[in-house]
Computed example of a mutant assay.
Amino acid sequence: MSESSLPSGVMTANINQLAGFLLKTSVWPATFGLACCAIEMMVTVSPDNDVARFGMERFCATPRQADLMIVAGRVSQKMAPVVRQVYDQMPEPKWVISMGVCASSGGMFNNYAIVQGVDHIVPVDVYLPGCPPRPQMLINAFLKLHEQIQNSPHAFNRKEIARQVEAAAMAETPLIEMKGLLR
């Protein structure tokens, strides 16, 4: 039966499209605010912005129930192992948004104490610029992430891809001692 001969109101989809739709409409972010960007992340879940329409209203306090980590703010060298540990505790599939210029590239903190980009620690799916980015920008990042989730094949081995990205980032990181990050 072709699509043109289907009765009105009937939709067709393959399993990959259905899995993408279900995954993108049930993303639960982990609460992981490190600096001033965390205030903007908190405002995003206020009634004015209504992220519940995207299925993201439940921010988790435990990484074992979250599948999205929003790294909001600068990451210090002392906090880097904690960021990695939280990421490792999240179930598959999982995604990361780097919120703010400090999380993405170290921002104005170009010194030994701040990690110059959270992508040295965890694989990042969406980079969100700004200092601090507005809640509307975070909602736009959610939409970009939803687009990635919907359009990506869901039968791939994300752990292996994350390991490859991590190995490439570690090869490019000059002389930063990453104690306990790689197991």
Results as ranks from 00 to 15, higher is better:
Q136C: 06
H154Q: 04
M170S: 15
S2Y: 09
C60K: 10
Q150S: 13
V45W: 02
P133G: 02
D88N: 06
N14A: 01
F21H: 07
I114P: 10
H146S: 15
I15V: 11
I121C: 10
R183I: 05
Y87T: 07
M170F: 15
Q150F: 15
E160F: 08
R158E: 11
V51C: 00
E172M: 14
G107S: 07
N140I: 02
R158C: 04
M56P: 04
T25M: 15
A162P: 01
K24V: 05
A61G: 15
E177F: 07
C60H: 03
L18P: 02
C36L: 08
Y127Q: 01
M90C: 04
R163T: 06
P153I: 01
R58S: 07
Q85R: 14
S104N: 14
M170E: 15
R84C: 08
V96A: 06
A72S: 14
P132G: 00
R53F: 02
L181Q: 11
R53S: 02
P29Q: 06
H146P: 10
D50M: 09
L22W: 14
L18D: 11
D67K: 10
V83Q: 06
P91I: 07
R74N: 13
L138R: 00
A13N: 03
P133Y: 08
G107N: 05
P47T: 11
